[in-house]
Amino acid sequence: MANVTFPRALAPRNLLTGAALRRLLGVAALLGGWELVARLGGTRLTPTLDEIAIRVLYDIETGTLLFHAQRTLLLAFSGLAIAVVVGCAVGLLMARSRWAEAALQPLLGATYPIPRLALYPVLILLFGLGAAPKIVLVSLECLYPMALGAYVGARSVTTTQLWLARNVGASWSRTLRDVIVPAALPSMLTGLRAAAPVMLIVIVVTEMIGENRGLGYMIMLARANFEPDGVLAVVAVLAVLGFAFDRAVVLLSRVLVFWERDVRL
């Protein structure tokens, strides 16, 4: 008989096994390669890893990193939160209503290839400089993976599951809450996993344009001061943040979607 032990995901036991080490090979090769280049033929443009690390520590010490990161994350998560709510609503609606599907699917399909970053100037004109256009752009960009995830998930609800709900006499809202949303949850989390890095990319890019706060601004400032180590320090921090978010979503999936043992994110 199958054996479901869902909090297993939280066990840190496999962190240092051979398999885990092998998975670090690619990252190690990249860093090693950079270090080699920096040491052998390096210029000011290619700071070594320890120089970058020192810069990160320096930025932490002076408080600048925390100050800018806070702002970035606040805007990013605000945008993501909007995308999660709106995207899930749109996706569920499309999956469960033929009208909504007919009306919205072509719209999403047609607008998906448009580089939404190109809309940023328009958003600035509409919302002014500041937080609003950035939040809007992040949510616009994250809307697609979220809506798609919710749509695919809600479509996976079987006819018999819905018939069961009708047989039992469950209301529309009850069916949504107890049947459709749980069934769609794994796919929604896949959407969230796709949205998280998009969120970081978009927020940092918007902060690089006409802004005086945020990690994107830090990059532009370091560039203006001709400090490649400053640029790369922020990039390193962003890499760590991106990785942390990804693992957080995976962990969340394992806890929330414990019944899907076969799905390895």
Binding site: Q161, L164, V257
Partner: peptide, 8 residues
């Protein structure tokens, strides 16, 4: 034909 139990 399928039990249609909610896996969650």
């Amino acid at each position: 034909q399928q039990a249609t139990l909610f896996p969650w």
